[in-house]
Each structure stands twice: as C-alpha cells, then as structure tokens.
Simulated assay, not measured.
Amino acid sequence: MNRRNRTMSFVWVLLVLAAHMWGRGFGPVAWVLLGLQFLVYPHVAYFVAVRSKNQMRTEFGNMLLDGLMFGIWMAALRFPLWPSYTLFICAAINMTVFRGAAGALLAAAVIACGTLLGAAVFGVHTEPATGPLTTSLSIATLSLYLLVVAKDAYARSLMLFQTRQQLRAKMEEVLALQQRLQEQSTQDPLTGLFNRRYLVEAMERELSRCARAGLPLSILLVDIDHFKRINDAFGHQSGDAVIVHLAQLLRQHARAGDVVCRYGGEEFLLLCPEMPQAAALERAQQYRTSLAAQPLQVGDASIPMTLSAGVATFPEHGDSAEALIRSADEALYRAKGLGRNRVELAGLSG
C-alpha cells in the first residue's frame, strides 16, 4: 500500500537532489547511485515486500532502510538545508503514519545513523546554502507530499467511517434479529399474545411480588365453546380467525399490568396481579358477554361464539402457579359441564 507514495515521492526528491547536484562537480557514479536509489530502489522494495510472508514487517524494514539511505545522502551532499529537511520530514511522516510518535523518533534515530555513516565515508562537510531552484523544488516536494499524505488520511478516515456505519447497521440487524427471536420464543405466532413459556416466568415473578406485598392475584382460564364444531363447519381458517378475535378482545380489555397468554389451542390464560376475586369474576363475565353479543363475520359466514371461564385467586385457591392453574382448570371444567357460556369460581360446587 506504500508503493505509490514511495515511488512518487522518490521521483520528487530525485528532482530536488538533482537540482542541487547540478553544477557542483558530482561525478557519474553519484548520478548513477542517485538513479538507482530514487528510481529503481522503490520498485525493488515493493517486490521484496509483496513476496514476503509478513508484508507489514518487511515494509517497515524498507522504511527503516529509506531513512538510513536518506541520512547517507544528506552527509554525501554536505547537509544542504532544504534537501536535508525534505528528506528528514518525508521519512519522519512516513514512519509516523505507521508507528505514531514512536515511529517519528525511530525515523530520527535511523537518519542520524545514516548521517554518521555518510560522514564516516565522505567526511564531515557542511554547505547548507541552496540555490533558488533547489529551494523551490524542495518546498514544492514537501507541499505535494503533505497533500498526498493528507489525501490518504482522508480516504482512510472515510473508509473507516463507512466501515463503522456498515458495522453499526449490521449490529442493528443483529440486535433486531435477537429481539425478533426473543419475541418468537415468548409470543404466540398466530395471536401475538404471550405463550406458556413466558407465562411460567411471569407467574412466578408476580406471585412472589404479590405474596411479599400481601396483595391478591387472580387468573382467568378461558376456553372457546364448541371450537371443534366451528372448525368443522366453517374451516380451519375461520377457526384461526375466531382465536385471533378472542385474543384481541382479551387484550383490549386487559390492564397495563395484566399478562394475556395463549395457553394452548383455543385456551387462553389471563394473569391479573393485584386483582381480587370479585373483580376477576366481573372481568370474566365481561369477556363472556362481549364475545357472545356479536357473531364474527368471516366472508359471507356469521360465526356465533361463546366462551367458558374458570377463575382462581391467590391465596384463596392456591399459593403456587401450579395450584392456581389447577384450581382455575377445575372451575373451567365445571363451567363446561354445566352447559358452557358461563364463568365458574374455583372451589365452588355449582
């Protein structure tokens, strides 16, 4: 990923150094080395890195070599101010992009080693002055290099932002899926009411709360009368419509704290915390009369409906979920036996 920046910046630096070397008596060997360093070397570094098993580590080694060679060139050219500054800044910025502040310090150390090595070979000479062309090319090279780095930083920031947006969207999809799965695990797919799995958790929780506070809790076990006849006479789709209709009726008249569940088939259970026995009986009678008062229209068919219900209250009819449900079920069975379309209270004989 560093090939383009290295290739372009090395060409710009070559122009800077060539402008400085021109007319200063450098022989053909120096010019050949200049060409090899800034025209051939970038491609060799790329091919070495791209074939490496650890490309990032190899490329980091290439950048260290860049800094070392830059230091040697600074000493060989007798430390001209603008070319030396250009070489140092380019190497420092490149290392900083990869390793942060530690990279900048490492770049300075490597360049210093290069200058010491160059000074040992070529001697310590300083000629900081540069001509107008070299100075102008140095400034232009620094400006272009900084703009390229800034452009790459913007592109990476934009890519990171887009990646984060995509991850956020994926996370929202996952959370929505988890919520749907949670709902599916606790809701009846036909009616949208809670199912028996949720009822078990809610009933234990509400019973414990009401027991601690000394409050009543009532349950209503409701069953559609002659549901099999409805299915046989009008079809299963009409039977489903009847179930959905009753579910809507139960939910419509439930309080905010009540839990309405499809208990199984055509049976429903209402968990009513803090509701005394008399209010529970009144509620069950309200459901019964409301359902019987208006037949359900399904297409051209008018389907008459009635329900039977058994009511049980904590603590009179049981002090556990199992005991309360058993008491309500016995009351419901008695309501069926007494002719249906009626409400019976647990513990009564008729």
Results as ranks from 00 to 15, higher is better:
138 S>Y: 02
176 A>Y: 03
193 L>F: 08
205 R>Q: 14
221 L>H: 13
177 L>S: 15
145 Y>M: 08
196 R>T: 04
236 H>D: 09
242 V>I: 05
200 V>G: 00
154 Y>G: 11
176 A>P: 08
229 R>T: 05
233 A>K: 12
202 A>S: 10
166 Q>A: 09
217 L>H: 01
230 I>T: 08
137 L>K: 09
154 Y>W: 07
217 L>I: 12
198 Y>D: 01
189 P>G: 11
170 K>V: 02
239 G>E: 02
235 G>P: 02
175 L>Q: 15
178 Q>L: 14
193 L>C: 03
194 F>M: 03
198 Y>L: 08
159 M>D: 05
207 L>G: 04
164 R>T: 13
177 L>G: 12
191 T>W: 04
195 N>P: 05
212 R>H: 10
168 R>W: 09
184 Q>P: 08
161 F>I: 08
193 L>G: 02
183 E>R: 13
153 A>I: 00
180 R>G: 03
219 I>L: 10
187 Q>K: 14
205 R>T: 12
145 Y>L: 00
155 A>P: 03
197 R>M: 09
172 E>F: 11
180 R>S: 08
175 L>T: 07
240 D>H: 07
214 G>F: 10
222 V>D: 00
145 Y>A: 05
190 L>F: 07
234 F>C: 03
138 S>N: 03
146 L>V: 15
186 T>K: 06
221 L>Q: 13
148 V>W: 03
195 N>C: 05
138 S>Q: 06
147 L>Q: 09
159 M>S: 05
215 L>Y: 08
234 F>Q: 01
143 S>P: 01
169 A>Q: 04
194 F>W: 06
217 L>D: 02
166 Q>D: 10
186 T>N: 07
198 Y>W: 05
203 M>C: 04
135 T>N: 09
226 H>E: 06
171 M>E: 15
192 G>A: 07
153 A>S: 07
218 S>C: 10
209 R>W: 11
144 L>R: 11
135 T>H: 04
149 V>R: 00
150 A>T: 13
175 L>Y: 11
196 R>H: 02
163 T>D: 12
139 I>K: 04
203 M>I: 09
153 A>C: 01
192 G>R: 02
142 L>K: 00
208 S>I: 00
165 Q>V: 01
185 S>H: 05
139 I>L: 06
236 H>I: 04
237 Q>R: 13
168 R>A: 15
136 S>A: 15
195 N>S: 02
165 Q>T: 05
150 A>D: 15
196 R>S: 09
235 G>S: 05
167 L>I: 06
208 S>N: 11
195 N>H: 02
204 E>Y: 12
199 L>Q: 00
231 N>M: 10
216 P>Q: 05
